[in-house]
Amino acid sequence: MSQAGSILLVLRHSPYSSQIAREALDAALTAAAFEVPVSLLFLNDGVYQLISEQQPEQLRAKNLSKALPALALYDIDQIYTSKSCLDIRGLNAAALCITAEPLDDAAVARLFHQYQHILSF
């Protein structure tokens, strides 16, 4: 199925090594505020954005994971991740801070094909 007029936002970087994770989230919320349907796909080190019990206060960084539950308030409920990216990093999809559907590699490829507009961070 083609997702015309909607955006797939791909998050590929860890949450606190740079500002990119926060700025990607800002882009997602802006799209939603403009009533553009947006789906999120957490890939590579981007899966670290999803782990529970993050303690970035020790780095004097704002806790990004606390902003994630707000996605539902913006009607962003199509949230995906990659099973292989989780497995490689020893993470369990059931123990993430929000619900993200773990896709196998073929399903990730299909997801990319469904969207005409992909914003990669």
Binding site: I7, A27, H117
Partner: peptide
Amino acid sequence: GQLIDATL
């Protein structure tokens, strides 16, 4: 908003 508009 400009990013979203340009994207779409």
